[in-house]
């Protein structure tokens, strides 16, 4: 099975886990699947459930598919201002 490597950068409440995390998932994984993997790797951190994954330009939807290596960010609920 072909795999892709993801680099996930952390912000806000995820900073307690460090700067980020890298892991491999099967090519063609959906964002929903990647969030499930992240939930498991972060020991069931429920903040993942209220968070979104984004690339440098936009927020990705749960049914978006990744076919190549990517640098993403996990964005927890926002509270700017």
């Amino acid at each position: 099975m072909n795999e892709i490597t993801l680099n996930i950068k952390f912000f806000g409440g995820f900073r307690k886990f460090g700067e980020g995390l890298s892991f491999a998932v099967p090519t063609g994984s959906t964002i929903a699947t990647i969030k499930a993997v992240l939930l498991e790797k972060l020991n069931g951190e429920t903040l993942v459930l209220d968070s979104v994954l984004a690339n440098d330009n936009e927020i990705l939807r749960d049914d978006d598919i990744l076919n190549s290596d990517a640098s993403l960010s996990i964005l927890p609920p926002v509270c700017g201002g």
């Binding site: 912000f11 806000g12 409440g13 900073r15 209220d50 968070s51 979104v52 984004a54 927020i59 964005l75 927890p76 609920p77 926002v78 509270c79 700017g80 201002g81």
Partner: peptide, 27 residues
């Protein structure tokens, strides 16, 4: 901005604790 901008704040308290504040889910 409060609902949509990817910005977060961590408050630092007099008792030595710090806490990331809850907010609006971008979901």
């Amino acid at each position: 901005i409060k609902k949509r901008a990817p910005v977060w704040k961590q408050e630092h308290y007099e008792n030595g604790r710090s806490e990331w504040l809850p907010g609006h889910s971008l979901n």
